[in-house]
Design a protein around this nucleic acid. Sequence first.
DNA 1: GAGAGCTTTGAATTGGGGTTCACTTCTTCG
DNA 2: CGAAGAAGTGAACCCCAATTCAAAGCTCTC
Lengths: 210, 210
Amino acid sequence: MAYRPTETTRRNAELKRAGFLRAARSLVAERGFGAATVAAIAAECAASVGSVYSYFDGREDLLAEVFRSAASHELDAVRTAVAEAGSDPRERLDTVITTFAGRALRGRRMAWALLFEPVTPAVEAERLVYRRSYTELLAAILRDGVADGVFAPQDPSLAASAVMGAISEALIGGLRPADGDEPAPSPEDKAIVEGIRLFCFRALGTEETL
Amino acid sequence: MAYRPTETTRRNAELKRAGFLRAARSLVAERGFGAATVAAIAAECAASVGSVYSYFDGREDLLAEVFRSAASHELDAVRTAVAEAGSDPRERLDTVITTFAGRALRGRRMAWALLFEPVTPAVEAERLVYRRSYTELLAAILRDGVADGVFAPQDPSLAASAVMGAISEALIGGLRPADGDEPAPSPEDKAIVEGIRLFCFRALGTEETL
DNA sequence: GAGAGCTTTGAATTGGGGTTCACTTCTTCG
DNA sequence: CGAAGAAGTGAACCCCAATTCAAAGCTCTC
C-alpha cells in the first residue's frame, strides 16, 4: 500500500469534476447541448477526452447532471421568488410567470436548451422531471386559488399544464435566436411578458390581474 | 436515342415515389421520424436502399416531404372544419380546438411526431411553417373576435401562440405513450379536451363557452 | 435482338461523435 | 529514491445510419 490519495488530492478531484460540469454548462448556455461534445468539454478544461470518463459514466451521464443542475437552479429561483411573494394565489402566479419568463428572456439560449432543444433520452428524462416540477408548483397555486374562489373552478393540473404551455410557446419565438450573440433584452420583451400575464390571468378566471 | 421512357413507365416511377412516401409516413405514424430510416423505408417497399436516392435527394428531403404532407393533411382537416363552422369567432375557435385535439388524441404517435419529436433541422424547418400556419389561423379568428368584442382586447398573435401552447402542452402527457400499441381513446380524453376548451375560452375573455 | 440509356441493387464507404485502453505521468509512502 | 497504485492521455476503435457507385437488370427504339 504505497499510495493513498491525500485530502488535497481528493479535493482536487472534486474540483476537476466540477470543472467539467462548469465547462459543459457554459457550452450549453452558449450553444446548446448539441455543442457540448466530450471533446469540447475536455478542451475547455485543458484536459484529455479520456479523463472525462474517470469522472462520469459517459456523456449522457454528464449532460444529465448539467441539465439537472441548470434546471434546478432555475426552479429554485422561481421557488424562492414565490416564497417571498405574498399568500394571494394571484400574486404567487404572477411571480411564477414574471420570474420564469424574465429569466428565460435573459438567458434565451439556456432556456431554449432546457425547454425545447432536442436531446438524448437520458436528458429528456430529466426534462420531464423538471417540467413536472413546474406544473406541480403551478398546480398547487391554482388549487389554492380555486379553493379560495380567486380562480374559476377547474382542474388545477390541466390548467397548470396549459399555463406552462402558454408561457413556453409564447416565449419560443424569442427564444430561438439561431446562432450568433445573445440578443440584448428588448423593450418588446416586456410587452410579451405582460401579454402572457394577462392571458394567464384571464384563463384562470380572474378579472383583476392583481 | 434508343430509349425514351413511355407514359406507363413514368407513371410507375411516380407510383414508386409515392410508395416510398407512404411507407415513410406509415413508419412515422407508428414509431416516429426516428424509426423512418432509409433502410426501413426501402424494406417496406421491397426496394433497395439505393433506389430511394433516385427519387429523393436524401433522407432529410424525403422526411421533410412526409412532414409537409402529413402536417398539411392535419391542417386541412382543421381548416375544413372551421370553414364549415359558423362565422361566430367563438364557434370557430371551438372548432379549431376540438378538431385539433380530437385528431391528435386519435393519432397520438403521429401528433407527437409532428408536434414534439426531436427532428433534424430540415424537418424542424417544416415544423415551424406548420406551427405558424396554426397560429395564423388562430390569430385570424382571435382578431375577428377582438374586433367584434366577443373576445377581450388583446394581441391576437401572442394569444394565438399561447393558445397553441396551452393545447399542445395539455395534450402532451397523453401524446407520449412510450412504445407499444396506440392506446384506445379513453373517456378521459373527452374531459381533457373539455378542460382545454374552457381554459382557452376563459383566456380569451369570454364567459359563455358558446 | 442489339445496344443505348434509364433504373435498381446492396456492399462498401463515409462521417462524426462517443468510448476504450495501453501507456505515460503523477503521488504517496516506506 | 523506488515501488505501487491513481490519474491523465489521445490515438485507435466502435457504432450506426446515411450515402455512394460500379455492376447488373430493364425498357425502349431500330
